[in-house]
């Protein structure tokens, strides 16, 4: 199994954290992982992208050029993802912000209202975790069953009170995928 994922969104939406947590969990599930971010010099508001691979065997190129799955967190990222997604690949779209239909008729399209679900949980900043739950359910590449332990080492202790809500967000994201 090798799952190559391309993730894109607006700076501040948590795309980089999403990618890092995805591979961190993958590593804890004994997968080979690699994460390569691209972002501009902007302090906030630029475009944030990540190339992420989890695999059962040694990973060759760390760059994702034709992803098996792609995450579209905002409207600007839609075309980027449409242009590179593998034929028949999985396109996960944050439908709270992306109202436009995709032109990729071959893709398996999964619409996840990340912002709405996150707001119902109390904070729009859980949107990336909602999407990570959906990605896990849709691809099966990372189960996320070690997420709680990962979050404990990823965040400083002062932030540990938010972990239950993050786990709820993951659950909610998983439920969106049929």
């Amino acid at each position: 199994m090798t799952e190559k994922t391309f993730m894109a969104g607006f700076g501040g939406q948590g795309v980089i954290s999403l990618g890092q947590l995805w591979v961190y969990c993958g590593m804890k599930e004994s997968k080979e992982v690699t994460f390569f971010p691209f972002y501009g010099a902007e302090k906030r508001g630029g475009i944030a992208r990540a190339s992420v691979i989890v695999s059962d065997s040694e990973i060759a190129s760390p760059l994702v050029t034709t992803p098996d799955s792609a995450i579209v967190m905002n409207i600007d990222s839609l075309k980027l993802c449409e242009d590179c997604l593998k034929k028949g690949g999985t396109l996960l779209i944050n439908s709270s912000l992306v109202k436009q239909e995709t032109t990729r008729k071959d893709a398996r399209v999964i619409k996840v209202p990340c912002n709405e679900i996150a707001e119902q949980l109390g904070d729009v900043r859980f949107a990336n975790m909602v999407m990570m739950g959906a990605l896990s359910k849709a691809t099966g590449a990372v189960k996320l069953d070690k997420l709680e332990a990962v979050l404990k080492s990823f965040f400083p202790e002062s932030k540990h009170k938010f972990i239950p809500k993050n786990l709820e967000a993951i659950e909610a994201g998983m439920k969106v995928v049929k």
């Binding site: 890092q20 994460f35 760059l63």
Partner: peptide, 9 residues
């Protein structure tokens, strides 16, 4: 820059 910036186990 790629070796420096990417994350792996």
């Amino acid at each position: 820059g790629l070796i420096g910036q990417m994350m792996e186990g």
